[in-house]
Write a protein that binds this DNA or RNA. Sequence first.
DNA 1: GTGAAAGCGCTAACAC
DNA 2: GTGTTAGCGCTTTCAC
Lengths: 346, 346
Amino acid sequence: MSKSGRITIRELARLAGVDKSIVSKVVNGVSAGQVSAVKQARIESLIQEHHYVPQNAARSLARRCNHQLAFLLTGPTQNSFANSAFSQILSGFAQQCRNLGYQCQVLSIESAELSAFLQPENLYRLGIDGCVLAGTNSELCPENLTAIRMPFLLLGWEYLRDVLPVISRDSSREYREMLDYGYSLGHRHIMYDSISPISQARFQKLAVHYPGVSVESCPADSQLDEFALAARQASAYAARPAGERPTLLWGSDHFCCSFATHLRQFGFSCPGDISIVSYSESWSAACYNPPLTTYSLDFRQWGSTAVEVILQIINGGLDLAASIELANHHIPRSIWQHRQSVCRLS
Amino acid sequence: MSKSGRITIRELARLAGVDKSIVSKVVNGVSAGQVSAVKQARIESLIQEHHYVPQNAARSLARRCNHQLAFLLTGPTQNSFANSAFSQILSGFAQQCRNLGYQCQVLSIESAELSAFLQPENLYRLGIDGCVLAGTNSELCPENLTAIRMPFLLLGWEYLRDVLPVISRDSSREYREMLDYGYSLGHRHIMYDSISPISQARFQKLAVHYPGVSVESCPADSQLDEFALAARQASAYAARPAGERPTLLWGSDHFCCSFATHLRQFGFSCPGDISIVSYSESWSAACYNPPLTTYSLDFRQWGSTAVEVILQIINGGLDLAASIELANHHIPRSIWQHRQSVCRLS
DNA sequence: GTGAAAGCGCTAACAC
DNA sequence: GTGTTAGCGCTTTCAC
């Protein structure tokens, strides 16, 4: 019995009257044809009897790999898991880790702290084989990430797709899908909640191809969170002359719900006055009053895919170029959930 | 340089011209008065220069502790993080782990699988120093948990408070608070979303002290999730004669939102026809239409407290009795958020 | 103050 | 098939 109170492989070997290495083989399932059936059976029953399980630390040390992955979440606050998109991604990630025999570590990092955190020291300290980074798009410096010689994967940060391993939707494709949808229902004045200049530009650029369509985004304000931003936009909406108001909003579930709730206080209703489509599916969107139409990724799936990809990178010993290539083979697609927050304009 | 590509303490010692044990002292900050200032400085600069960080696995092996905690989440599906209460608890848990120099592992376990999972083998395999279990109250067998000789803590499972280390609200106290509130606003017919017989009984028992008050709970149905249950209750509500409908609902944010949304389809509104109080605060409740009044724990705080308590149990080497005692010193209290889903009955 | 040495529990190469 | 052996990288006595 070891000092930690758990039985060790050495003890087990002694009890079975064999060498540690034999036990090791049995434990690791590489005993086929290497260990006599008799001993195999004896060892196995001993393992059962003593509830033997190898000690992680010793194993990691000897194997030089930890069988642990980290899920890094970043955002303006330490509280990004309040965003159900991310907790769903984590959910899929953790589950797939377990399926594939890996352990899942979780860290939540404020955006302000992120670049300081992304140093080799900090990542090494975790004792992980690789990591996945998700979150509301904090600024990221590609050089810092590649300097860390550790397999990693980004969930989001689409614009870094060519220089880092990124799994992200194809936003141009999806913006188009969205514009097609709104256009076909007669909407010509669309509001989009993004505060990212890159997304805004991309969206504007596509909108040009839709005759008569005008698109507007939210004026950014780093002081305000999404809810406050939505509240402000709702006031602004109410203050505008009747003909100049957007008839369709595209936003996150946070933004959409907050916007609609505030709008109602000004006497406007959804979908009567404005149609709403959320690009993030959640129970909150589905149960909102009215239930929100969404066009969203499957977040759990996204997390689950992330595990598969990072493991391929790790186990394949892929270099940066190959990792990027691999990640780009996994572009997730959004799907529609039609509910009651959208109406056709006559 | 070790095979893993990272510099080792041995290398560092060689470069500094000292023994490993000296470097170890410096790394671990126990060098005060034990190491000469000169060597101390030399070693420290070497550490910086080479980005040295000790390897987790080797350290854990030698120290016989892992500096890792696990957050176990259980619920009817693998998807319990969709419930923002739990993702918030995790958020606080992960953050506090980081603050206190521990790493946080996450596992999500289906209720059906839970008792099979809670075996010593499975917990040992994680290489953790202790674990915290949260989730929608799956059945738990106290004997199984105590059989695992590992520090653990339950978040919820109030009825096990006397036999296991549990951090949970004092529901009797909070039910009373809730009944006082509803009663004072003139509500006499209250619906409570719980499907747990224990909670129902406790609630009923308290309600007796409020003259004229009748309380009803949801008929349980293990096939249905909370949303479906709420939908069913909404239909049932609508089908009842006018005078017999509850005027106040107390439920989770999931249940309340779903209920209200479905009710609206029958032409009923909140708070006009029914007042709603959620016992779980979330942005979804705050942004619902109408915004929901809540009386809820601070979930992040709960998770953060859990870390502190489990670490006291671990570091203090507390036995079961002492752990229970300690946990019971930390009874979290709910707080009110008054919003627009409640009205006074004339 | 410093360093030698033993050991944590396991893996894996290799010789038998 | 089986056992010997040499680590993995770090901590921690204990003698000097």
